[in-house]
Write a protein that binds this DNA or RNA. Structure first.
Length: 285
DNA sequence: GCACTATCTTTGGTTGAGCC
DNA sequence: GGCTCAACCAAAGATAGTGC
């Protein structure tokens, strides 16, 4: 059942299941993120046999052919949403239910496209699992508590973070020093990260670390961190109504002033101008 | 209170020399 | 060739202040 937003008198097309039994998946007209928190199971997804072991995330959408064949001591949580939930509508259009070309959270739906390269299953390691556990716990709390009128905003913020990390996990897969550093950045970008943290992690000195980063990404480690943070911030500006200070804090900037300075340097416009423009452009297309 | 600018301090990037 | 170290300078980070 969709959530009734008690602050804005509207239906929000999302659900959170703390105890997922896997029997009714996929849910009708829903995309679902399933976090396996215990056990393992074998299943068929669109006729493709998969083995899912804790800890993993499964991305399922309405229309997928999903059948659990056998399971052992499983425990899972699910966050489900109608794909239109990823759309962001300007306030002036919020009463128009059929607004075409609204901006949509970038990495969202591509995770649910199943093909030979990607079967909707993303395995986690223990470090990343603890991050997902924290996000899912918070999603569940936000859905049930609706503590203020920004609760939908915050859910979109967590979805942006979850989608970006899942996309990185889907694309990565090696375990070189740079891969370790990238993984560290993708998990911890919301906290302060210093060059020293990455050199200790990779056992490289500053010069070697940056040389290897430049070979692979054409950026130094901290330049990559900055562009990753600003990329997440851009999505939050477009898809949430969070204040600049909240976005700055959520993306690892200790000061909103520094965030704005970096943002303007990268994009040539202020965050507020970007927020307005990105929504206008998408609607005009 | 929020968004933004100016300025000062600290940290990181680059480069050349040298070691293994 | 791959790495470390040291020095210099630019960029990032922190703080104070302004305007709305």
């Amino acid at each position: 059942m969709p959530q009734k937003d008690r602050h804005k008198n509207r239906q929000v097309e999302i659900e959170f299941h703390a105890q997922e039994h896997l029997t009714d998946l996929p849910y009708n007209r829903r995309y679902s993120l399933i976090l396996l928190t215990q056990g393992s199971f074998k299943a068929k997804l669109n006729n493709y046999p998969i083995t899912v072991n804790f800890p993993s995330v499964i991305c399922l959408k309405s229309g997928d052919d999903f059948e659990v064949l056998n399971q052992q001591n499983i425990s899972a949580s699910t966050f489900s949403f109608d794909p239109t939930f990823l759309n962001t509508v300007r306030l002036s259009q919020s009463k128009d239910l059929n607004v075409p070309n609204t901006p949509r959270i970038k990495e969202g739906l591509s995770l649910f496209e199943n093909d030979l390269q990607h079967i909707g299953l993303i395995e986690l390691d223990t470090e990343i699992y603890s991050k997902f556990l924290q996000w899912f716990f918070t999603l569940g709390m936000e859905v049930s508590a609706q503590s203020d009128d920004l609760w939908v905003c915050r859910i979109k913020q967590y979805l942006i973070q979850i989608f970006n990390l899942l996309k990185q996990l889907k694309d990565d897969g090696q375990n070189s020093a740079i891969d370790q550093a990238l993984k560290y950045i993708h998990i911890n970008y919301a906290s302060p990260i210093r060059s020293e943290d990455l050199t200790q992690l990779t056992h490289l000195n500053r010069v070697s670390l940056n040389e290897q980063f430049k070979k692979r990404l054409n950026q130094t480690a901290l330049q990559y961190l900055m562009s990753y943070r600003l990329n997440i911030a851009e999505q939050m500006l477009t898809h949430t109504g969070m204040s600049l200070n909240d976005i700055a804090l959520a993306t690892g900037f200790e000061y909103d002033t520094y965030f704005m300075k970096q943002f303007k340097q990268k994009n040539g416009i202020s965050p507020t101008e970007y927020r307005n423009l990105s929504r206008e452009i998408a609607v005009a297309q």
